[in-house]
Amino acid sequence: MTLLPERLLTGYRNFMAQRYANETMRYKQLADQGQTPETLVIACCDSRSAPEIIFDTAPGEIFVVRNVANLVPPYAPDGEYHSTSAALEFAVQSLKVKNIVVLGHGRCGGIKAALDGDSEPLSPGDFIGKWMSLVAPAADAVSANELMTPFERQTALERISIRYSLRNLRTFPCIDILEKKGRLTLHGAWFDISTGELWIMNPETGDFLRPDPEEVGAPAALE
């Protein structure tokens, strides 16, 4: 009987022999004292864009929420099931994070599905289609631009969706209040899987800037 795929078992053995062995005390402290991450990252489910790897973080350093296309729905206290909203509530109200980062990425399958309006649902429930309808108006507007190439449309909507999620974050009363008090900061970023480049959204203009690799704190080039 196979309990787990062999690749995962091998990875776990490597984890125990290397990372856990080197950070045993940190893990024990996290177990005893709980987690106190200062940053919440809202990222895509895509296996190629893991925030913990991109930002080279230690255990317990960032709180991560992942869903299709890193979307944040509007605040909707309607009694239904809202996994992303629940994670937001916990991160902001309980963990009291100081930063929220919406991390998008290139070649996002969810964004591609939103742009391909004629694609057939993957199942009768069409859960992806329903979820991506959150950005349907923007997808329609981008698709209507005949002067853009398919790649340009994809990148444009990937970045627009980040701005959309940031706007929806501010519909949550607790986030809006804390941001206005200066106790919470919202950020947008876009990761290029092919080149490894990280583009950071200027909060004042909405433009995405690429930091100088040698001076990460100083955005150097406009898109």
Rank of each mutant, 00 (worst) to 15 (best):
D56R: 01
L122S: 14
V92M: 01
R26D: 12
F90S: 06
K130A: 14
D118T: 04
L88V: 00
D32P: 04
P173D: 02
V65P: 14
I54L: 03
A144Y: 08
K28E: 12
E38F: 08
D176E: 02
G206I: 03
V64H: 06
L88G: 01
W190G: 13
E89F: 06
A221Y: 10
A113S: 12
T36Q: 15
Y81R: 07
A31H: 02
D118C: 05
T195H: 10
R159V: 14
N22S: 09
F63E: 12
G117V: 06
S143Q: 05
G117R: 02
N99H: 13
C44A: 03
Y81F: 07
I200P: 13
A144D: 03
P51K: 03
L103G: 12
T171L: 12
F127Q: 06
I162C: 09
E197M: 15
Q18D: 05
E120K: 07
W199H: 05
C174N: 14
K180N: 09
P5V: 02
L30R: 01
T205Y: 10
P213L: 02
D78S: 01
S133T: 06
I54K: 01
M148G: 14
L134N: 10
E146Y: 07
A189K: 03
E61C: 11
L9C: 09
N70E: 10
